[in-house]
Design a protein around this nucleic acid. Structure first.
Length: 672
DNA sequence: CATCGTATAGTTTTT
DNA sequence: CTATACGATG
């Protein structure tokens, strides 16, 4: 306890009632959560298995788990059985125990956004104008309804316009389809457990008994259904600590409700509020700028960050001609800075509002041989080879998973094309059976040639055999390996990519996937043996991110401001500090500049020692040049803390180019 | 079935 | 401008 400050200690020790910890950026919120867990176990004699800590990201969960384990190990106690997971993983755990009560069958699949969009397109194909945008709007709408715990009939009766009426009709069909496929989507991982709790007293009391203390991280990001899950789990006991910062709420467009912080006060009249205002991350100047910036937003809970980490250098504002110049400049500034100081690449982050802004920066970084790593690209599970093998895994676990079936059936090529699938689909549709089941009955149809029938039937029997082998040998990984061999997946990859090297890389990803299957099988929770559980857990994991992190030991970080939340870097550059970019155009139009301000605040508070804003005078927007104005946020920070470095006189473009190149080659030389 | 060409639409996206 | 998705064509 000695290394905690007074409010931190208060937060750790408070137990009598629900606790809200308003933790400013860099104020040690993770430390409070980990200490509190240790405190509960060591001082209050709670069993680790009766404590749950919930986060939003896998990364946060991983970090928390390891920090608790480390802390406890130091003192010779241990945290075995402690439940640290994401909301979605917790939902899956709850669902896995009692899925049957909701009508699901063993081995149910989890549909990712792509899967569910495919289902929606399928549904809408017949009754609605098949415009692809419409399907994703509908997906978004349904997701919003689920976040609000609205069932299809409620959505229909409360629909506000024609679009919503139409979407509600799709919602009905969508839910039917998911049940038929024995699948849940990501949102269901929260909403279905809530329904379980509401409908089945016994399930609720089981979990209330199991989880006797609940801690929630990044509380400002909870949405309606997550809030319901939390309050149901906590019940009347009120054994709850939530940690959050309303100033860092940047996901309202995704259903996050910062008002949940307030709601808590209404729901628990004995709510205790502790503010953490001492910042251990940034120098004073950066905090002063951050405080000034965020003070332009209205506040329910006032807080003011301070630190004793020194004053720090002025915050620079560097004006550039356009986005290419901006990219060039940020890289040269970074390299100059690195030469002047004993820093490493990993001490730097370049942050931006939209993913597309990374492009020119990446170009320059590659040109200059600067190691960088970029988050927010395609994830491991978005990779086609992983999706393929996952689809096989899902289909083995859940034969009703038509999405998996469709992905797998002609990958690699088995000569079963759209025509055959349509006939198969019609057959299955009429009888309300899965595509996979329909395969077995194909012998009866006259619509298909014997050759095609044979292929379809062969495939289905082969897959049944795979499932049998898994059951018989009990060795999932081995069987999968054989299966991948049997379908000559490597050959298929070589054929598709036309590049043996790339095929090899992709095969390595599959090897990695299998290694993860193995690891999951070995985990001590003995109930993880079922293939469906493995597939479900894998769907929620983020292997690639982890790999990227592990592989890059020294690299500049590139990411969106959203992705930067929760991280810190000694030196931060924020790109595109312009009207219509940092307060984003659509946000200005929708009069939601406050969230943009929080986003800027998140960016500013990532910086420990130095902060540099970049901006461009003009920018290509959809091929058209438009001129840009400095962001209003720059004016909202103390003038004396900002050092503007803008080019007053326009430079001749040819000269500028020459000089730019000179810059680059000079630096390149110096680096050698 | 694959490839090419044209149309279209373009914030953020923890799971 | 450029990524993507879908449709026509070979």
């Amino acid at each position: 306890m000695q290394d905690l400050n007074t409010p931190q200690r208060e937060a750790v020790k408070h137990l009598g009632s629900p606790l809200l910890v308003l933790a400013g950026a860099g104020s040690g919120k993770t430390r409070v959560i980990t200490r509190k867990i240790a405190y509960l176990i060591e001082q209050c004699d709670m069993m680790p298995r009766n404590i749950a800590a919930v986060t939003f990201t896998n990364k946060a969960a991983r970090e928390m788990k390891s920090r608790v384990a480390e802390l406890m190990n130091q003192r010779g106690s241990n945290s075995r059985g402690l439940l640290v997971s994401t909301f979605h993983n917790l939902g899956l755990t709850i669902l896995r125990r009692d899925f049957a009560l909701l009508g699901y069958r063993p081995g149910f699949s989890i549909f990712d956004a792509q899967d569910s969009l495919a289902v929606l397109r399928d549904i809408m194909g017949q009754d609605f104008a098949a415009d692809s945008d419409h399907a994703s709007r509908c997906q978004w709408q349904i997701s919003e309804w689920k976040n609000d715990l609205k069932l299809p009939d409620q959505a229909a009766s409360q629909a506000e316009d024609a679009d919503q009426v139409a979407a509600a009709a799709v919602y009905v069909e969508y839910e039917k389809a998911l049940l038929a496929y024995n699948a849940v989507d990501f949102d269901d991982l929260i909403t279905k457990p809530v329904m379980l709790f509401q409908q089945h007293e016994k399930v609720l009391s089981y979990w209330q008994n199991r989880i006797r203390y609940l801690l929630v991280d990044e509380y400002q990001d909870t949405n309606g259904s997550q809030y319901a899950l939390v309050t149901l789990l906590v019940g009347k006991r009120g054994a709850l600590t939530v940690v959050g910062d309303d100033d860092q709420s940047v996901y309202s467009w995704r259903g996050a409700r910062p008002e949940n912080l307030l709601q808590l006060q209404a729901d628990y009249t004995d709510l205790k509020v502790v503010k953490l205002e001492q910042n251990y991350r940034s120098v004073s100047r950066i905090l002063r700028a951050a405080n000034a910036l965020i003070s332009h937003n209205p506040h329910i809970f006032e807080k003011k960050l301070w630190s004793d980490m020194g004053e720090g250098d002025p915050i620079r504002v560097i004006g550039c001609r356009n986005e290419d110049h901006e990219a060039e400049k940020v890289v040269t500034e970074l390299l100059f800075h690195k030469m002047k100081r004993p820093t490493e690449y990993k001490d730097y982050a370049i942050l931006y509002r939209g993913n597309h802004q990374s492009r020119p920066i990446e170009r320059i970084l590659r040109e200059m041989d600067v190691p960088y790593f970029i988050t927010g690209g395609q994830s491991f599970f978005a990779r086609s080879e992983i999706k393929d093998i996952m689809a096989y895994l899902r289909l083995v676990a859940n034969q009703d998973d038509d999405n998996a079936f469709l992905r797998v059936i002609n990958t690699p090529r088995r000569g079963i094309g759209p025509k055959t699938l349509q006939i198969l689909g019609n057959y299955a549709g009429e009888r309300e059976i899965s595509l996979f089941s329909a395969c077995f009955e194909m012998g009866l149809t006259t619509q298909l040639s014997t050759a095609v029938k044979t292929k379809v039937i062969e495939f289905s029997h082969w897959l049944v055999d795979i499932a049998d082998r898994v059951a018989r040998t009990g060795d999932l990984v081995d069987t999968l390996r054989d299966m991948i061999e049997e379908i000559n997946y490597r050959g298929w990859l070589e054929e598709v990519t036309g590049d043996p090297m790339q095929a090899e890389r992709r095969m390595e990803n599959i090897t990695e996937l299998l290694a993860w299957v193995e690891r999951l099988l070995k985990r001590e929770e003995g109930d993880m043996k079922e293939i469906g559980d493995i597939a479900a857990r894998l769907t929620l994991m983020d292997i690639m991110e982890r790999q990227a992190e592990e592989n890059q030991d020294d690299a500049v970080s590139l990411m969106t401001l959203h992705a930067a939340k929760g991280l810190e870097f000694p030196h931060v550059f924020i790109m595109g500090m312009e009207e219509e970019i940092l307060p984003h155009k659509t946000s200005i139009e929708e009069e939601n500049v406050e969230e943009e301000r929080r986003l800027a605040y998140v960016g500013v508070t990532r910086a420990q020692r130095s902060l540099t804003f970049m901006m461009a005078k003009s920018r290509k927007r959809y091929g058209e040049k438009v001129s840009c104005e400095p962001s209003r946020f720059l004016m909202e920070m103390p003038e004396q803390d900002l050092a503007w470095e803008t080019e007053k006189t326009p430079v001749d473009p040819v000269k500028r180019k020459e000089r730019g190149n000179m810059h680059l080659s000079k630096i390149r030389e110096m680096l050698k």
